[in-house]
Every structure is written in structure tokens, then in C-alpha cells.
Amino acid sequence: MMTLLETTAGSNVKVTNLDSVHALVRRRLGDLGVMVGSVISLRKTMPFGGPCTIEIKGQWIAIRRKDAGSILVEGV
């Protein structure tokens, strides 16, 4: 069990838990197709603790690092 932030950029992982993500962010992530079981990957991280981008099925999303750090994932 690891968080999305601990994965190597560009590698596909499967979401296992989103419970500790900010509630509204979790809703939006769901709207964009990021749910438990989705396959996503971490792409870029901005400097100075800024946001990071994730990719799901060709769609790119930027979220804060804190939220990315609360997405639990496992390797696929």
C-alpha cells in the first residue's frame, strides 16, 4: 500500500482508497473518472510543493500535492 506521490512518474497504478482526500476534490475526481479501481499515473510535480498532474485514460488533471498524497494506490 502506498500513496500516489510515492510512485514513479509515468507508471500506471490502481486506486485503492480515496477516503482521506478533501471531500470536494474527491467529488471532482469522481466526475473526471478517478474512482477506486481506476488506473491512473502520476505525471509532473510543480516545484516548491506546488500541485502535480495525474493522467487517466488520456485525460490530464492537476491537483494539489496534499490530495495526491492521500490517494492510496497499488501496482498493476
Partner: peptide
């Protein structure tokens, strides 16, 4: 109120 940020990045 807690701040939040999420945006979709279009191609």
C-alpha cells in the same frame, strides 16, 4: 473554509 484546487487540463 478549506481551500481546494483541481483543474482539468485540456489538450
Amino acid at each position: 473554509e478549506e481551500s481546494m484546487f483541481i483543474v482539468e487540463m485540456p489538450p
